[in-house]
């Protein structure tokens, strides 16, 4: 069954949706959209690093994404203006990554597969990585769930309950880096943040509790993956952008549905 490239692609999309649903919800609740973008853009630099050092691509992106996420967290804790810092870091990471990768002649040709993903070329090994990483993120979030929610609501409240908000923030940072490494093959560095934000944003209008929002976001991410792949196959469009387009259409429908229901 896994020999069919389309089934592998579909499973890759589902594996990614499993992780981006709950993590994307936190990205929205904590207003980390730009933070996600910066971390995801750093993935291109990770690809260049991996190729230069002959590391697996996933290891390179994981290291660089993690470094980026930790740098941003540290600067934020030191009171740097977040909007500006992220604006500088996100675009610098992308620019440096693109410059660095131009030194690797073999990649120049399929640079777009790193920018926009190449889900139709997902191998069994990739699939193992995507589901392994996705499971890791889901397990981490499930384990820390109550503490993460409390710290997201109010850090003082978390403190007073004996929790450590810094530790919870670190858990999210780790999860984000893993998702970036996992998502690179599916939607590419430029659209990873979209897979985090759009399904969760679409789920917001429908959900009544944090848990239902995360679950609905998983469902929407999964549906967008499958619809996007079909679209890609049928119209011969790039798969990653097609998946994100499908998610955006679901978001629009959910927003309209929400307006009608509330009026």
């Amino acid at each position: 069954m896994l020999d069919d490239f389309l089934i592998r692609a579909g499973l890759a999309g589902l594996g990614l949706a499993l992780a981006t649903g709950p993590l994307g919800s936190f990205v929205i609740w904590r207003r980390m959209a730009y933070f996600g973008d910066a971390t995801a853009h750093a993935a291109i630099l990770g690809v260049a690093l991996a190729l230069a050092l002959h590391l697996p691509i996933a290891a390179g992106t994981l290291i660089v994404a993690l470094t980026m996420a930790l740098t941003v967290s540290t600067l934020a804790a030191k009171g740097w203006a977040m909007d500006t810092t992220l604006g500088v870091l996100a675009h610098s990471a992308l620019a440096f990554g693109l410059v660095a990768i131009s030194y690797v002649p073999s990649v120049r040709a399929d640079l777009s597969s790193y920018l926009f993903g190449d889900v139709l070329a997902v191998t069994k090994a990739d699939l193992g990585l995507i589901w392994g990483g996705g499971a890791l993120v889901v397990a981490l979030l499930a384990w820390r769930w109550q503490a993460l929610l409390t710290a997201t609501l109010n850090e003082d409240l978390a403190h007073a309950s004996g929790l450590n908000p810094d530790r919870e923030r670190l858990a999210l940072t780790l999860a984000l880096a893993v998702v970036v490494a996992v998502a690179l093959k599916v939607v590419g560095a430029l659209l990873i943040a979209a897979m985090l934000i759009i399904p969760a944003a679409a789920a917001r209008g429908i959900a009544r509790t944090p848990e239902s929002m995360a679950a609905i976001a998983i469902g929407i991410g999964a549906a967008a993956s499958l619809i996007g792949l079909q679209l890609s196959l049928w119209q011969d469009t790039p798969a990653g952008p097609s998946i994100v387009s499908a998610a955006a259409i679901i978001f629009a429908l959910a927003a309209i549905f929400g307006r009608i229901r509330n009026s």
């Binding site: 929205i28 609740w29 207003r31 109550q146 503490a147 929610l149 409390t150 997201t152 609501l153 109010n154 003082d156 409240l157 978390a158 007073a160 309950s161 929790l163 917001r204 959900a207 009544r208 509790t209 944090p210 848990e211 239902s212 929002m213």
Partner: peptide, 28 residues
């Protein structure tokens, strides 16, 4: 055993949260 009521708790509109669910944070 300490109970704390913070000064400002702005529950962001982006987070759906029923009163019942809120009471179960962080201890169910």
């Amino acid at each position: 055993r300490l109970g704390y009521v913070p000064q400002k708790l702005a529950i962001d509109r982006s987070m759906p949260m029923t009163v019942r669910r809120f009471l179960s944070l962080p201890t169910r």
